[in-house]
Each structure stands twice: as structure tokens, then as C-alpha cells.
């Protein structure tokens, strides 16, 4: 073993494999969410191939659940685009926070690794960097693990979903809503966030009652976003 200092942006096959294994404990959870999505998607009436394609290519749980909310014989494309963008906008922040290490990588690797960036592997790789260890293996290897289990879970749920006749009696129509609420409640909680949520809820209710179909999503997202910008919080907190 050499004592050569390992660069933090270093990424290698063993690091990717170790990242894959480190995310394995979370894979049970991801598979369970995948099952919930596959089930909900089948209940919404999506074809098997559409469901699998969505999980494989989009690979973003909350956005996929939201897509089901907008799904029907006709889909409002612009609303779908804005909704998916708004939910996934946090990826922009992930990319920005990973940039100091990603910039040392050639573009192909840089953007290749970002293909599988999501909440869990991003958080773990940032943690690794803060400990002074190379974290990009966790980002990529962990991301591949998350992707595999997400797709596997989706496939399982899809098959269960097609077998259940009355999903409502099992409370399965509430999987989506409970998932969203768990994400909201699990996030940052302070007076500012509470106010942002209240504004989002009030404005989207008004839009739901008085504006065209599906505009409540965009109105709520924008109103909350604007309030969050005006009420800026503390500028030089360490985050």
C-alpha cells in the first residue's frame, strides 16, 4: 500500500462497487417505494411497457407519482412538464453542490454519473466528501443500486397492481398522497417553511376552484417559490 494522498474527486471501479454495496441497505426501502409506484401506475391504467419505461428512464419517484395524478385519456403536456420540473428542480441543487468535485472529471464521466443522481446517493456522497473521503463512487455506484431496485420494485408492484380489483378498499389510492405528505413533513420544518406551505396550499386551493383544470399545481408551486424567495431566511447559514 502506498501512502499517496487520494484525491477527493477520485473515482474507480472499486469505489463504484463499494458505493453500490453501501446503498444496499436502502435498497429494501427503494424496492418498497417501487412496488407502491408500480401498483399505483397499474391502477391508474398505464400499460405495462409505459410503466417500466417511466421508472427506467425518469427514475424520480415523486415526479412519477405526480405524473399519475395528471394521467388520463388526455394529458396536459405543459402542466406535466412544469410539474416534473418543479419536483425535480432539487436535482439542480445537487448538481451545483457536487460541481467542485465533478469539475475534475471529463464531461462524459461528469454527466454520466449525474444520470443516476438522486436524494439518497447524493446525500451519502456529500457526507463522504465532508469526511475528507472520495465520494463520487458512492454517487455513481449507489445510484446504479437505487436505479436497479427502483425498476425491480416497479415491476413487482405492477404485477400485484393488475391483480387487485378494488384498490380503494385497501386504501391504495392514498399511497401517493401519503408519500407526498411524508416528503413534506420529513423536510425542513420552521416558521418560514410552514408559511410557504400555507401559501402553496391556499393558492392552489383557489386555483383548483376558480382556474382551469390542473393549474393548481403550477400556481401552488410558483406562489410557494416566490414567498420562499421574498422571505429569504438567513443568508450566511452554512448550508
Amino acid at each position: 500500500m502506498t501512502h499517496r494522498h487520494t484525491e477527493l474527486h477520485h473515482v474507480s471501479r472499486p469505489l463504484v462497487w463499494s458505493g453500490f454495496k453501501q446503498l444496499a441497505p436502502i435498497s429494501v426501502l427503494v424496492t418498497a417505494f417501487g412496488v407502491a409506484f408500480g401498483l399505483a401506475a397499474a391502477q391508474t391504467g398505464l400499460h405495462d411497457s409505459t410503466i417500466m419505461m417511466m421508472s427506467a428512464l425518469v427514475f424520480a419517484g415523486a415526479a412519477q407519482f405526480a405524473a399519475l395524478e395528471l394521467w388520463g385519456a388526455q394529458i396536459p403536456l405543459l402542466t406535466m412538464i412544469i410539474t416534473v420540473f418543479a419536483i425535480n428542480a432539487r436535482h439542480l441543487l445537487m448538481g451545483a453542490t457536487l460541481y467542485p468535485w465533478l469539475r475534475h472529471q471529463p464531461p462524459l464521466k461528469r454527466y454520466g454519473m449525474m444520470l443516476v443522481a438522486s436524494d439518497a446517493n447524493w446525500a451519502m456522497s456529500m457526507q463522504e466528501f465532508s469526511r475528507g473521503k472520495p465520494g463520487l463512487g458512492l454517487l455513481f455506484g449507489g445510484g446504479i443500486a437505487l436505479w436497479l431496485f427502483w425498476v425491480l420494485g416497479t415491476w413487482l408492484g405492477m404485477h400485484f397492481g393488475n391483480a387487485i380489483n378494488d384498490p380503494k378498499s385497501f386504501g391504495l389510492d392514498m399511497v401517493m398522497g401519503c408519500f407526498f405528505l411524508a416528503l413534506i413533513v420529513g423536510g425542513e420544518k420552521d416558521v418560514r417553511m410552514l408559511f410557504i406551505w400555507v401559501v402553496a396550499a391556499a393558492s392552489s386551493s383557489l386555483a383548483y376552484w376558480y382556474l382551469p383544470d390542473n393549474s393548481h399545481v403550477i400556481v401552488g408551486a410558483l406562489a410557494g417559490g416566490i414567498v420562499g424567495t421574498v422571505w429569504g431566511g438567513e443568508q450566511d447559514s452554512g448550508h
Binding site: 415523486a62 405526480a66 395524478e69 410539474t83 418543479a86 419536483i87 425535480n88 428542480a89 432539487r90 398522497g177 407526498f180 405528505l181 416528503l183 413534506i184 423536510g187 425542513e188 417553511m193 410557504i196 406551505w197 401559501v199 402553496a200 396550499a201 393558492s203 392552489s204 386551493s205 383548483y208 393548481h216 399545481v217 403550477i218 400556481v219 401552488g220 408551486a221 410558483l222 406562489a223 410557494g224 417559490g225 416566490i226 414567498v227 420562499g228 424567495t229
Partner: peptide, 12 residues
């Protein structure tokens, strides 16, 4: 703020 609010709006 926006990525939290969109979830609230979907719940409404």
C-alpha cells in the same frame, strides 16, 4: 421553496 410547494399543491 418551489420543490416543497409543488407537493403541497398536488395534495390540495
Amino acid at each position: 421553496a418551489m420543490s416543497g410547494s409543488v407537493l403541497v399543491a398536488l395534495l390540495t
